[in-house]
Structure formats: C-alpha cells, structure tokens
C-alpha cells in the first residue's frame, strides 16, 4: 500500500523534497483535540510548523508536543511502523503517523489529524482500545493442538506457511477495524483485525482449532456482517489484503458446512 502522492502543482520545497535537498516548508496541522476534563466537545486546533516535507507526520506531532503544546496527547512507541500505536485518521484516511511522510499528504493544505473512528476517544488522539482487543481475544489468537506435544519443533512446509503469510503481518494497530463502516455502527462486530488474526490460525496447518474459530466467526456479529467495502484493505499500513482474508474465512465456512 502506498499513500497517494499529489499530482497538484508542486512547490519548490516539494521538488526539493524529491531531489533530496533539505528545504523547510510551513506546514499546518489541523488536529481534533478533545479533553473531557476541560470541555465536553472536541475542537479543531491549527498548529503552524516549519518542517522538512521528507519527515513523517509523527515528527510533526512530536514537534507540536515538544515545542508548542505539551498537552497534545497521542500514542506512539517504536515510531517505525511495527508497534501499531499511532494509527490515526490523517486527511480523512486511517494511516500510521510514523509511516506517512508529510510530502505525501499534501502539506500545501492544512493536514487534518483526528482519532480513529468507532472507538471512544479518551483524550485528543487516544482512543479506548479495550473493545478492539476484546474482539481479538474472542477469536482465540493462539495455537490450539490436540494430543501429545512433539519433542521437536512443529515443522511446516514452505507452501503451508505461504498459505497464511499475508495475515501474519498484522500489527494490531486498529486502522482496518476503525475504518469499517459496519464497525462504526455496531461495535460488537468482530471487525477486520480480529478476523485477520483468526485467519492466521485457521489456515495454519499446525493448528487444530480451526473449527472452533470458524464457529465463533459464524456468529451473528461474525464474518457475515462484512459488506466488502474494502475500507480495511485500503487502510492497512502493512498492505494486508484484509477483505480477501475475510472472504477466505467465509468460503471456508460455506465449504465446511456443505
């Protein structure tokens, strides 16, 4: 997945960004701030920064927090697209702030940043992830086997490993689940991320709990609520074909039941 680059007329600074030279440009971050202890309603606040467009949106957020307003609250840990802490809605699309370069989100306009949708916003860009992880726990994302434990590793052929390779990439950032319109309307839907992680074990040749997981996902709030709007595939910062994984779980359910 790649964020769309802008085709609009480039400024000199943007051209410099392409060639590798450092040229600072003025960037406006329009952040949706929310602090329930101060005001019951969220407000959009603009911050002006002098940034190198080759830097990431997370760098801009850090710059705001460290130099302008220390009360700005957001999650970030590794800052290299692995921990999945800083998923947020940048210019109306779910992305990881640490994987999005400023030059890719049209810095000539104010860059809007808000919390991911469908989860309760606790403060600024921090949401309550409990329902998200509850859905993850509910699909039993761990190896289930019967019989005696082998004395050696559980071996697997390269083809068997390839079968679920795509869904092992998930970092649980919630970008997919919080881009899903079904999840926005009904938080009890498992959501794409939980289904992706179920897929990772359902199609693992070493795992024997596929039937249990399929039974869970055959539920009222399971895979059948998916409308294949592809928002999740588009949002995934790891490029997982999320909708395809969900459809594969549906197919497995249909073929195993008939």
């Amino acid at each position: 997945m790649s964020a769309p680059t802008i085709d609009a007329p480039h400024s000199a600074a943007l051209d410099a960004a392409e060639s590798g030279a450092v040229q600072l440009i003025t960037v406006t971050l329009r952040i949706r701030r929310f602090n329930p202890e101060e005001h019951p309603d969220p407000v959009w606040v603009d911050y002006q920064l002098l940034m190198d467009p080759k830097e990431r949106v997370l760098d801009a957020l850090n710059k705001v927090k460290w130099e302008q307003d220390g009360t700005l609250t957001y999650r970030r840990s590794c800052a290299h697209g692995i921990c999945g802490s800083d998923a947020m809605r940048i210019n109306g699309r779910n992305r990881l702030a640490c994987k999005t370069l400023i030059k890719d989100v049209n810095p000539e306009q104010p860059i809007t940043i808000e919390a991911i949708k469908g989860l309760a916003v606790l403060k600024d860009l921090v949401v309550d992830m409990d329902p998200f992880f509850q859905a993850y726990k509910d699909v039993m994302p761990f190896l289930i086997t019967n019989g005696n434990e082998p004395t050696r590793e559980r071996l697997q052929s390269a083809e068997d490993r390839e079968r679920f390779d795509d869904t092992t990439k998930c970092i649980l950032c919630a970008a997919c689940t919080s881009s899903c319109p079904v999840f926005w309307n009904d938080g009890q839907y498992f959501g794409p991320a939980a289904i992706v992680n179920a897929h990772r074990f359902i199609f693992d040749s070493r795992d024997e709990g596929a039937e249990q997981r399929l039974e869970i996902l055959n539920d009222r709030e399971g895979v059948w609520r998916c409308r294949t709007t592809f928002n999740c595939s588009e949002a995934c910062p790891r490029g997982i074909e999320v909708t395809k994984a969900i459809q594969e779980v549906k197919r497995a359910l249909v073929t195993r039941r008939f």
């Binding site: 202890e37 469908g118 309760a120 409990d130 509850q134 039974e215 055959n218 539920d219 039941r257």
Partner: peptide
C-alpha cells in the same frame, strides 16, 4: 473520573459480557 460522562461511547461496544455463539447457521 467525572469527565467520563463526556466520553462518547460508540454504539454497542464489545465487552467481556458480549453474548457468544448463537450456534446456528442462520447468518450464513
């Protein structure tokens, strides 16, 4: 925290109490 009342919860969040498994194939 009294400020919790201003936190807008999305409709029907999944909790540990969310009912599990209807055990029918109706949705499919």
């Amino acid at each position: 925290n009294p400020a919790d009342q201003f936190v807008i919860q999305p409709p029907r969040t999944r909790t540990t109490k969310t009912p599990r498994r209807t055990r029918t194939n109706f949705e499919m």
